[in-house]
Design a protein around this nucleic acid. Sequence first.
RNA 1: GCCCCUGUGGCGGAAUUGGUAGACGCGCUCGACUCAAAAUCGAGUUCUGCAAAGAGUGCUGGUUCGAGUCCGGCCAGGGGCACCA
Length: 887
Amino acid sequence: MSSTSEKTPVERYNPKVAEPKWQEQWLLNRLFACANDDPRPKYYVLEMFPYPSGRIHMGHVRNYTLGDVVARYKRARGFNVLHPMGWDSFGMPAENAAMEHKVHPKEWTYANIAAMRKQLQSIGFSLDWDRELATCDVSYYRHQQKMFLDFAKKGLAYRKASKVNWDPVDQTVLANEQVIEGRGWRSGAVVETRELTQWFFKITRFSEDLLEKLDSLTGWPEKVRLMQNNWIGRSEGLMVRFALDGESAKKAGVEAEELTVFTTRHDTLFGARFMAVAADHPLAKAASEHNPELAAFCDECRRVGTAQENIDKAEKKGFDTGIRARHPFDPEWTLPVYVANFILMDYGTGAIFGCPAHDQRDLDFANKYNLGNTVVVCPEDQDPETFIVTDTAYVGDGRIVHSRFLDGLSVADAQEEVAKRLEKEEFNGAPVGTRRVNFRLRDWGISRQRYWGCPIPMIHCEHCGVVPVPETDLPVTLPEDVTFDQPGNPLDRHPTWKHVNCPQCGAKARRETDTMDTFVDSSWYFGRFTNPHLETAPLDRATCDHWLPVDIYIGGIEHAILHLLYSRFFTRAMREIGLTALDEPFNGLFTQGMVVHEAYGREAGGHWDYILPEDVRIEFVDNERKAFHRGDGGPVTILGIEKMSKSKKNIVDPDEIVGSYGADTARWFMLSDSPPERDVIWTEEGVQGAFRFVQRVWRLVHELKARAGNAEINPQAPFGPVGLSVRKAAHKALANVTDDIERLRFNRCVAHAYDLANNLQEALAAPVNSEAHLDAAFREAAFILLTIIAPMMPHLAEECWEVFGFEGFAAAAPWPAADRALLQEDSITLPVQINGKKRADVVVPRNAGAAEGEALTLAVPDVQRILAGRPPKNVIVVPGRIVNVVA
RNA sequence: GCCCCUGUGGCGGAAUUGGUAGACGCGCUCGACUCAAAAUCGAGUUCUGCAAAGAGUGCUGGUUCGAGUCCGGCCAGGGGCACCA
């Protein structure tokens, strides 16, 4: 580059050279390796680990950038920071790849991991790679198998029959999310409801605790706590045992003498008109045996299944079993017992008493079968004699009516009265009523008919039943010689793998061929990171309890329930088997927004032909943004801003961005525009803006270097006006960034950095010939500027650090404290409002009281002009803030 | 249906938590440099208005000396749950 100007232009900053250089230096100097026995206070930063799909996407870049800023900042603040990375590496896509590309899942997965590791390293995340783990490593999942056995011993893992979505073509269980419009998402086959015996984790043992401890998770977003609260779904009610009329039961061929229901509205017991049970209820099954019509009805109910759409469409239907139940307060009063399609077997007892007047579903049902209704709760503003219910049930509060001894009571009092009486009432030697807390939460079914997962270490023996694999035989490893040329579970059709001898009796037995849900793998990896190479146990208790809970856990909101709830369950289960003393795994939780991008397309024969952003050119025509195709120049429609997805082609590849602008630019842009919890819109202009700033910092640092001395700052030195303003700007920025980084307000940190750069540029342009200590002020300002950008743009900071010759690495430098004395001005300018509108300014001494403030305000010419001689009615002086004159 | 969140310039957003609305960035306009472009630098950019001034944080009412912020009622957008007895 040639130059004719006085200043020697600085060569542009080249991230392609600088970034790999510093990444290598950090690694060589082991700056991010973290020791368990370090005496400094600990800080555990964790981002949700990725599935190794093959390439990282912008969502990953955002997620790990957010975590990296915190990790680097906390390191600078003197913490021993644990910031690890791993791979959630079991799961379906590897098997799909095997089926489609004839590549072994293991090979595919580890190749992806290698590629993605390289990508992550190119972005300069300060990760401790010594602790890397993949859940498909035998050294990881062997411990999971051990935990499974320990859980089983404690009753936390068990087998039971349950209904599942079964894909008859792929011959596997599908999760609810994998059933689209009643068909398997891969095969397109109509999904059947099957009753299969599956392995479950007893998450419901901790329902109460999982709910209660939500209150202690003050570092979690309110929204996530609320979602978990709803998911666990606690409700208080009463279990009520209804005696069955013997004669009618006998006629129906049923031996049962009673029917138990769960209710939260026992105050409406006198409004009962019928009873209803689920199609799978034992009573329905027993009665079906003697009644083919009823059996057919029950089959029909089962077929409708659990798909949401069916539920929405389905009409309330029932079938009278002929059985009659006796009212608990009046043996002469009998109620018909129906089998009904809207009763769920797995909530409560699978049976209800129907009170049509005060429950919409019951009312719909009663109206269809002409069962009538009795109003027993009357709204306060209604006359009990005239208040009736026809099509809309009344579910609100009110006075109890038409209910014998309950009349006149409130809903709450009536519930208490009913509970008290029925607790004392006896039937067959036990109380009729029992108070009961019921939860919506159900146990976690973990069996998957898949190959690429953690094998469940159990053996089925004809003589001994289900027998655990002896611990000495662990791990149960996946066989490698498997085929994917036909549907179904490769483990099941492997010629030898499943054939084993029973560990108890030695007879020929069958290995469990189901593997675990991949959510199991991710439910404890955060603990494993604390001691990832431990061979003798999943965790070392002391180490685990030292590091956990995770101080800040960062990831997407989509895991608000599943992963986060499962991890909370696992922590409790691990506590029961003595692995930890921990209450909760994650102290702080941050849910980041998505990376979204404009989508572009052209209409082509009734469908949208999407176009990659890189093939689109944006121009302004008459002040309007227009898009054109870079290839043929034709007009392109700008579609909405959406989540980056392959199908809409609105994706930007991190490698491309890092390749053309560098990692720091990508990181800076990710942090700059939107608050981290909101979606960020990825734009080419925004990236260029970030890149401009990278270059601007580079130039600025060189200009500062040219003006700065080598002397350290002496705060007592007599600074001139420029030096003082430089120092004030620098320390203000430092104080602001410190404050905002602690609260994860990175978009504001970015703004403060811009502010400081603007201020410094202004100061450099100021016509100063000589001013005492100005060189030291510039040196200090450069140091502060680099300190505050270092967590966000670590490579640039490092390169500039070297330009200035500051000591050591920027990445290892301690965080300086802002000089608070510089943040206070001697006199301040207060806005003056007159009747709430800003009209003037007044300059007052920093410590001016209300009286002095008022006097100075009333002396301001503008104020006097507006008041025009009239005395103000009131003057409110908020010291240091504002003055409001009421005229 | 129930529960929750969010509405601020052309755009992303800021506003010390009741105290100067629009920081900072993007975009746009004008100018300087250049043969030219890029890069860079300077000026401007909520709306109406030449200006003085006035209006302004989804709409509407209220509390307050003072409301983007608090309260009531609407409207719009987004999310979660849902035959849960």
